[in-house]
């Protein structure tokens, strides 16, 4: 059966009078690594918590591994790994005791993997949890979420507290591991370069909805910026169908849009009596174009 490990339709959630999620649609294909991108405060954590049954949605539907997250049975829970933004553990436990304690809840806990990875990530097995830095705590959190080899891994801003190069190395290790086990990953972040390195899909959450949900390669191949250079000043209200954003300054216009082909370029050139150039956009450019207002 080709079922999406995560399937969300019209999901809504409000805090008091503030609508945070206003109809989120999202499908996460099996085996994919999806980066959920959004500015701080856009509701990424809220969405993830709704998927894990930690928050109750106000409307819409969510299915996680085929189940309603609000009503997850123990077997399904054991197939999911989750790392919250702030990992909370018993401070007086050592790292090794924590691994043993959490592992005892899972029949399929991989002790060898947990211990080996703790060493590889330079986590001291004898250290007390309360002495760990935020970065080390997040590493331990992810290790705890990986130890039972879940089918679906949900990471909320993974390793956001590590410095960029440590984060890169660390995310690569996680992805190396999940790729081998063909796990599905949904991770939230506001760091576009993390998504560019490790995700194969990107979903952008903005104003309570998913504004963009695509394969990263497809997005980069199809989303372009057209630079129009007119012989004379271009009209300030110049508009192009389907454009994400249009900026006009003097005789120059920058138009970002998807699926700009040669025919469209020729058409723009003749409509505006201008020369058109096509430029690539990286994920940060695209993200900024979506947030220009």
């Amino acid at each position: 059966m080709t079922e999406f490990p995560v399937h969300v339709q019209g999901l809504e959630r409000r805090y008091g009078r503030k609508e945070v999620l206003r109809g989120v649609d999202l499908d996460v294909p099996a085996g994919s690594v999806v980066g959920l991108l959004g500015r701080n405060g856009e509701g990424k954590t809220t969405l993830l918590k709704c998927l894990l049954g930690l928050l109750r949605p106000g409307g819409g539907t969510a299915r996680v591994l085929g189940r309603d997250p609000w009503d997850l049975d123990a077997d399904t829970k054991a197939r999911i790994g989750y790392v919250p933004q702030e990992v909370e553990l018993y401070g007086w436990f050592s790292v090794e005791e924590t691994l043993g304690y959490v592992g005892s809840f899972y029949p399929l806990w991989n002790h060898t993997f947990a211990r080996d990875t703790a060493r590889a990530w330079r986590l001291d097995l004898d250290a007390r949890v309360k002495t760990l830095s935020r970065g080390q705590l997040q590493k331990l959190g992810i290790l705890l979420a990986l130890g039972h080899e879940p089918e679906l891994l949900v990471l909320d801003e993974p390793a956001a507290s590590l410095d960029p190069s440590a984060r890169r190395e660390f995310l690569a290790t996680v992805i190396d591991h999940v790729a081998e086990l063909q796990q599905t990953v949904l991770f939230s972040t506001h760091i576009t370069s993390d998504v560019e390195r490790i995700a194969d899909r990107v979903a952008v959450l903005k104003d309570g909805r998913i504004r963009l949900d695509e394969e990263l390669d497809t997005l980069k191949t199809t989303m372009k910026r057209v630079r129009l250079i007119g012989r004379v000043d271009l009209p300030r209200d110049l508009s192009v169908d389907g454009a994400l954003r249009v900026r006009v300054r003097g005789n120059e216009a920058l138009v970002s849009l998807q699926h700009a082909d040669d025919a469209l370029l020729r058409q723009l050139e003749s409509t505006w009596n201008a020369r058109a150039e096509l430029h690539d956009l990286n994920l940060e450019d695209i993200f900024l174009e979506l947030h220009h207002d």
Binding site: V33, L171, A172, D176, A179, R197, D200
Partner: peptide, 10 residues
């Protein structure tokens, strides 16, 4: 993938 710190699927 390890060396370049990217997704093996890529």
């Amino acid at each position: 993938a390890r060396e370049l710190e990217i997704n093996p699927m890529t």
